[in-house]
Write a protein that binds this DNA or RNA. Structure first.
Lengths: 152, 152
DNA sequence: TATTGTTATACTCTATAACTATA
DNA sequence: TATAGTTATAGAGTATAACAATA
């Protein structure tokens, strides 16, 4: 961790804009997901499962989400009660459990996704000039890499 | 809310990078603040109070942070127990209470801020090319404006 | 022995509603 | 009557540690 002088106004503006934009977009997303009965974490789970036709091991899912196993157990139980996810035996390892999306879960993802995309488009992507999405992806991608490398 | 086609790869990349960068930087910041015994919300409070020599009304602080009044009462009580904040009578309105930073609180902010700035610099600002901070601030500033206008 | 997943439990945080005191 | 702040309370979510079943 290097130490240095304070931030100048343009640096402060960029940092503030990044955190505020991240905050606000997450808040807006959370509000919209709530209309579909999902928290952001639950949406992450069902969205991930929608790409995994054979389901996903509980441990793997917990690692991917960076939550504890008991925390995942709690969330999957909630989703199971809502009928969106089912638990099944893990083939080849009788200790294991796989979470699988139900038909209702797949429908829910289908109902939720278009509005989610529209929100992101209207509040973010539509405000970027030509080529700016690519540039932003590159720049912020570097930021993500650095943070991951630093163990965040 | 407009509806539209799915996101193309560069759009998806920009969106993913924004949320991931926002997430990761907030996580890294939270971890660092924890070393100084503060949550992000508590840091927001003491940082704000450090710019308010005469203290700040509880209601105004709650509005500024976008938390309920009882939620602010809880946090200020925690900070008071930690000796970082004190409550004082509000001049001119005997119903009011102002939260003021104690000397210990001011010291804590002073101890916490340099590392905070360094983290932001190392993981974000140092990765931007010349002029990029300004550009990013402008672009993301538009995003923030839009989200605020949309009531986020 | 080690690993998978659940359960028991405790803790933090948040909000709503009721309440007190003052405007 | 309305507003400022606190308190009582309840709910959601998270994690740690202990546990049962299997590898």
């Amino acid at each position: 961790m290097t130490d240095g002088p304070a931030l100048d106004p343009s640096e402060l503006g960029a940092y503030f804009a990044l955190t505020a934009a991240g905050d606000l977009i997450q808040r807006a997303v959370a509000a919209q997901l709530a209309e579909h009965g999902l928290t952001p974490l639950q949406f992450s789970i069902v969205a991930k499962l929608s790409e995994s036709p054979d389901g996903m091991r509980m441990s793997d899912l917990a690692d991917w989400l960076v939550v504890s196993r008991s925390g995942l157990t709690y969330q999957v139980t909630q989703l199971e009660r809502a009928g969106l996810v089912a638990r099944a035996a893990s083939p080849g390892d009788d200790r294991g459990v796989v979470a699988v999306l139900t038909d209702a879960g797949r429908s829910r993802v289908g109902e939720t996704f278009p509005g989610h995309v529209a929100l992101v488009r209207e509040n973010f992507l539509d405000l970027l000039g030509p080529g700016e999405a690519t540039a932003l992806g590159t720049t912020l991608g570097r930021v993500v890499e650095r943070l991951r490398a630093n163990g965040a």
